[in-house]
């Protein structure tokens, strides 16, 4: 009985079986289970797990796209990578991008969700507006942003000069280009965070707020601190990590608006990987970058899992 090895939580998900075993039924269920799961399993291996393993393997070779021979070169790719100035720039840029975008996107998403949920009127209207960028094609809106950032006729510079603020060619200035991309990223991602927070807020039982009011915690601050914040804990951890993982993958805006420039100021990990792998065809080197990227993603997921474990209240 292999099922006995299943954890209790998994076990309960299954079909309760009468006490007396029916071997024939068990075999049939095994056959059915395998035949229904196998096509998906094969594809999971073909499209995700297999390629992921290949990427790791490839990163220890010298293979370039189209070359007839492959040689095992151990850690040489990583040695080269860690000595590569562009890699460190890309990694730093990615970390800055994620580090600035996540708090803004999560904070604004939470703020908007709180404001929307706290009132009676206009909730649907506002959530639609704030969510609109999530469904819109990033590439198309990126072009609109590019025009808005245009140094002379761009809307943003017109506003800035009207307000007497300094203007610049946002996407061509190495000091501002990355933050211009962050602004676009925040604009695009906060709607999803808002929706996730709204779902989280709506799942908080109303009588907790009422109990808090009777207990004396009825100011905005106390309500937020005693009920909303702790009840939102798991959702918050999830939203933060998902936003971080997604923004780690930033590519579209870089590829279409800045090409990683000016002077590598907006080069990010996935963009460097794309260039090495598909422009310069250095597949093995790109694979090494991919492995670094994967490692960061897994660390984020691990952090999420540990935090969630600690913050889940219901057994």
């Amino acid at each position: 009985m292999a099922e006995i090895a299943l954890k209790p939580a998994e076990y309960s998900a299954g079909v309760p079986r009468p006490a007396k075993g029916r071997p024939a039924g068990a075999i049939l269920e095994n056959v059915a289970g395998w035949s229904l799961a196998t096509p998906a399993l094969v594809l999971i291996w073909l499209m995700f797990l297999g390629p992921a393993l290949v990427v790791i393997g490839l990163s220890f070779t010298d293979w370039q796209f189209g070359m007839p021979t492959v040689a095992w070169i151990g850690l040489d790719n990583y040695v080269e990578l860690f000595a590569d100035r562009v890699f460190w720039i890309s990694l730093t840029n990615t970390l800055i991008y994620v580090g600035v975008l996540v708090p803004l996107s999560v904070g604004l998403g939470l703020g908007v969700a709180l404001l929307i949920e706290d009132g009676l009127s206009g909730s649907r209207f506002y959530s639609a507006i704030y969510f609109l960028p999530v469904t819109a094609t990033m590439l198309a809106t990126a072009l609109a942003w590019e025009f808005a950032f245009h140094p002379s006729v761009g809307f943003i510079n017109q506003i800035f000069s009207f307000l007497g603020l300094p203007t610049t060619d946002w996407l061509k200035n190495p000091d501002t280009a990355l933050f211009a991309l962050v602004a676009i990223g925040v604009w695009q991602s906060m709607g999803l965070n808002m929706v996730l927070f709204l779902a989280g807020l709506r799942a908080i039982p109303k009588d907790l707020y009422e109990a808090a009011a009777i207990d004396g915690a009825d100011s905005f601050f106390e309500r937020f601190r005693r009920v909303t914040w702790p009840m939102l804990g798991p959702a918050l951890v999830f939203v933060v990590t998902v936003t971080a993982i997604r923004s780690f993958q930033v590519f579209d805006t870089v590829a279409v608006l800045t090409d990683g420039g000016p002077n590598k100021a907006t080069s990010v990990l996935i963009y460097q990987m794309y260039q090495e792998g598909f422009s310069f065809l250095r597949s093995a080197y790109a694979a090494a970058i991919t492995v670094v990227f994967l490692a960061f993603t897994l660390v984020l997921t691990l952090a999420q899992a540990t935090l969630l474990d600690r913050r889940t209240h219901y057994s």
């Binding site: 907790l208 009422e210 808090a212 009920v227």
Partner: peptide
Amino acid sequence: LPPKGRDIAMVFQSYALYPYM
């Protein structure tokens, strides 16, 4: 007066215990 000023206490149907405390 708000609830806290009324010198009352309430037991809710769902108990409304704070699950994280």
